[in-house]
Every structure is written in structure tokens, then in C-alpha cells.
Design a protein around this nucleic acid. Structure first.
Lengths: 246, 246
DNA sequence: CGTACGATTGAGAGACTTCAACAAACGTGG
DNA sequence: CCACGTTTGTTGAAGTCTCTCAATCGTACG
């Protein structure tokens, strides 16, 4: 039976909200998470949160905004490898991999919580079940990267964009940040291009195709999806790899 | 100080050999790994080890041979997402993700050890440090997938192939399966194509370019790398993402 | 009201694909 | 040990998806 006050607090805590979408957490474990020390920090758009080569002592938890993981190639081009939203802990990997092999940047003004790595480790030692949940979370992230890989390897630009839009929409919904038929998506065409291995010119043209086909309505950062099923089919999107509870 | 008999055994145990390359393991932990129950099984070439949608009760450890992870697209094309060799536990994800979202197949006759998931879990509960090491291993795999992603997104076919050859060679060396200037690589051009998001025709032509440029000598499944540094430069290969100890 | 960044458009080029055929290598059975 | 079929590797030619370059347009913001 769930404690009501705790339940209130739990929903307002982004990490709990997210973990709740991928696993069952006991009240005791919820309390342990709420008890974690955290320093809140606001990052302006285009400011790096963690840089390649660094070894940070804190883990980053996204409270709001939009963050992405990227790497710069020797020739200056950029590859984006993941988008992160409320509740995500993008550098959970720093718990066990001490030197970052990629960077994190805020796409828009975002607030993040910095949790001392040591506090997190100690807490996970006391709650091995929670440790498993976070491990599970990192495995889900791997599954997302793999699905992304499939797109870059075997899907057309049209499919790739449709697929990414589906994924982002589903993830935003899972943490309560999207309506059934749309969401806010503060991602520029340049960022789509860097994420999907395309040029901005091509992204622009394919987005027009998607609009022309009535699959999306994209004005500024507002995305509308008139026919979800159609977009899903266009992107060959199957949410199984996200391993959500429902 | 290390127990000599244990040391002997450790080197002959593929899992220990591999974990040893990414972390420091205590004698007690080594013994715990050696005590794991395991059923050895031989898989013929092109036989699936785990299939998408399944929920296996065992974890797969590769004892020898060559295994890859793949997914089939609706149109029948295949994307390979990873290669696995001695010591790898490709479906460690099944510890926490109960339904497989991709498949594993043996590329050549391979032997694998099946470790009951429950035994592994119980052992990890008794040795939280080992749990962290395996978690670390899955995080390294994520890093490999990300690097692969970068290749598909931003590297030319020529670079991609060079990069993959470098990675495989380094990983084979880490577990003692490669000479300094070459190794055995039982991967067909079709498999390279499916792994790198290319057509077999193009793989064939680019391999010829690599040969012409003196970067590789590839006869059958024997790979020679006359000038490692040159191949590394061609593929923009930086082993940092493998997070090896030395 | 200028400036800057993102979105859009046109035209030409290039990397990679597809189709199709053929050669070489390999394992297997007679 | 050779014949044979199957798999893997190789080659040519035509096509296409996507890129690069370069210019223009819109809009938010100081």
C-alpha cells in the first residue's frame, strides 16, 4: 500500500517518475531516492554539461529542458548519439566508466541536478534492487542506441526522421510531457541532421515530404501528429525496445 | 598476492580473462566466478543462439568462435549491431531486460556456456563489486555501439571498414586471440556489409581499395595488418572508448 | 532596425546501390 | 580424388539517394 504523501512527492520527483515508467519501486526505495543529496544547476542553451575526456565526480539528472550526447569528428562534423529529457541520467555511465568518451550539451535552457557519485554509489549498495533498476535503465539506453544504429544503417532519411519523432514522442509521453497527438520538441533541423547522419538541407526537404504526406505538423518547436499510426508505419517504429512497463 | 593455482585456472577461464582486461578482480571474486554452474553447448555456423522475442532463463558466455547480434528489417534486410568473441556475455542484458529485442547468431561453429540467470544473480548479490564490473562491461558495450553509430552516421565506407578492423583486432588482442600484426577474422563480406550499413558490392570494392593502399592483407579469414598506425589513421580509430585497463 | 540564426530553395556532384553476370573457393558425396 | 553444387568474392554499368555549395528568406531579439 502506498503512502499518499510519498506518492505526491514521488510524482514531483523526475527521477522517480522516470524509474516508475520502467520498473516497480518500493516505498522504501523511493524514500532512499528522495533522500539523495543533489545540487540544482541551470544550463543555458548550447552550454556543455560534461565534456569528452573529463572525469566528473557527480552524476547528472535532467530536471527539465532538453539535452543531447554528441561527439565531434576530427573534421569538425558532429554526431549526436542520444537525446535526454526529464528524469534521464545521461551519464550514469560515469558511475563505472571514469573518463567520459563523449560530451553532453543542453539544447535549450535546462535545469539539472548534480548527485555526488559517492552518495549514489553508497545508496545503491544499500538497495541492490535499485541498483538493478538503474542498471536496467542503462540497458534500455543501449537498446535505444542500437535502434538508432539500425536506422542509420538500414533506413532511409524519411524513415529515420519518422522513427526519431515517434521515439521522442513516446518517451515524452512516458514522463507526462506530451499530449496524445503532439508535443513540444525544441530541436533544430541542424540537430536532426547531426543526429540522423544527414545534411541539414536534406532534413529540411524530408521534413517537407512528411508534412506534405500529412504525417506531421511542425511549426517552430510544436509538433503535431495527426495520425500516429501512419507516422509509426512510416518509421517502422516498434516501441518494444524501450521496454516500458505498460 | 595471487594464488598460483587460481591464477592458472583464471587464465583458462574465458570470462575471467575478459573481465581481467577491463577491471581488477580479487581472488575471492575469481573463485565465485569459477564456481558458477555452466552448461557448455556447441552451436553450428548460422544457427541462432537467442532469437528476438524470446525470454531465455540463461545467460550466454562465448567460449570460442564468433557470434553477432542482429535484427531483421521488415523488408528482409539485416543489420548487425555487434560482434562477440571469447569471454563476451552478449545477453547480459537479459539479466534485467526479460524479452530480447534482437537476436544472436553464431558466425562460425562456436561453443558457448549457458549460465542460469538465477545463479548469476545470486552470485552478484553476494559480490556487489563483481556486479559493478559486469555493469561496467555492459556500459563498455554501449560505448562500442555508440562508436559504431558514429561510423554509420559520419564516416565513409572506407573509414568504417578500417575502424571495424581496428576494433576487432584490438579486442581479439585483449583476450589473447591475435598476433600483433594480424588475426583470424571469420567474417564474410556480406556480414561486413550488414554490419556497416553497406552493400556487399561496395564492401568488396572498398576492401580492394584498402588492399591497394597497403593497409590490409586479407586472404580468406586471415587478416594481416602491415602498418597498424596507418590503418588506425584511416579509420580514425581511438581505442579510448573500449576502456581497456592498459 | 540591423544582426544572427534557422529554415528554405536550386543546381550540380558524388558516394553508394541495384541488377546482373561471372569467377573462385569450399565442402560434400560418389 | 574428382565432380558437383553452394557459397563467397569480383566486376561492369546504370541509377538514386543524399551531399555540397551557395544564395535567399524569415523571424526573433538586442
Amino acid at each position: 500500500m502506498m503512502n499518499t504523501a510519498l506518492h505526491e512527492q514521488a510524482w514531483s520527483n523526475p527521477l522517480l517518475r522516470k524509474l516508475d515508467s520502467i520498473a516497480d519501486i518500493s516505498d522504501e526505495e523511493k524514500q532512499a531516492i528522495l533522500d539523495l543529496p543533489a545540487a540544482v544547476k541551470v544550463c543555458e542553451a548550447d552550454v556543455d554539461i560534461v565534456r569528452e575526456g573529463e572525469c566528473s565526480t557527480d552524476c547528472v539528472l535532467i530536471l527539465n529542458g532538453f539535452v543531447c550526447r554528441y561527439k565531434i569528428m576530427p573534421d569538425g562534423r558532429r554526431q549526436i548519439m542520444g537525446f535526454y529529457i526529464l528524469g534521464d541520467i545521461p551519464d550514469l555511465q560515469s558511475l563505472h566508466l571514469h573518463v567520459m568518451d563523449n560530451s553532453l550539451v543542453a539544447l535549450v535552457r535546462s535545469s539539472i541536478a548534480l548527485i555526488p557519485r559517492k552518495s549514489l554509489r553508497d545508496m545503491l549498495r544499500r538497495h541492490p534492487d535499485l541498483s538493478d533498476v538503474l542498471w536496467r535503465d542503462t540497458l534500455i539506453e543501449t537498446a535505444m542506441v542500437r535502434e538508432w544504429l539500425i536506422g542509420l544503417g538500414r533506413r532511409s532519411a524519411y524513415q529515420r526522421i519518422a522513427h526519431l519523432l515517434c521515439e521522442l514522442h513516446v518517451r515524452l509521453r512516458a514522463v507526462g510531457l506530451a499530449r496524445e497527438n503532439g508535443c513540444e520538441l525544441p530541436i533544430t533541423q541542424t540537430e536532426f541532421a547531426d543526429a540522423l547522419g544527414l545534411s541539414t538541407v536534406h532534413v529540411n526537404r524530408v521534413l517537407q515530404d512528411l508534412r506534405r504526406d500529412g504525417l506531421i505538423v511542425l511549426r517552430g518547436s510544436m509538433l503535431e501528429i495527426p495520425d500516429w499510426r501512419a507516422l509509426q508505419d512510416a518509421g517502422e517504429f516498434d516501441p518494444a525496445y524501450l521496454h516500458l512497463k505498460r
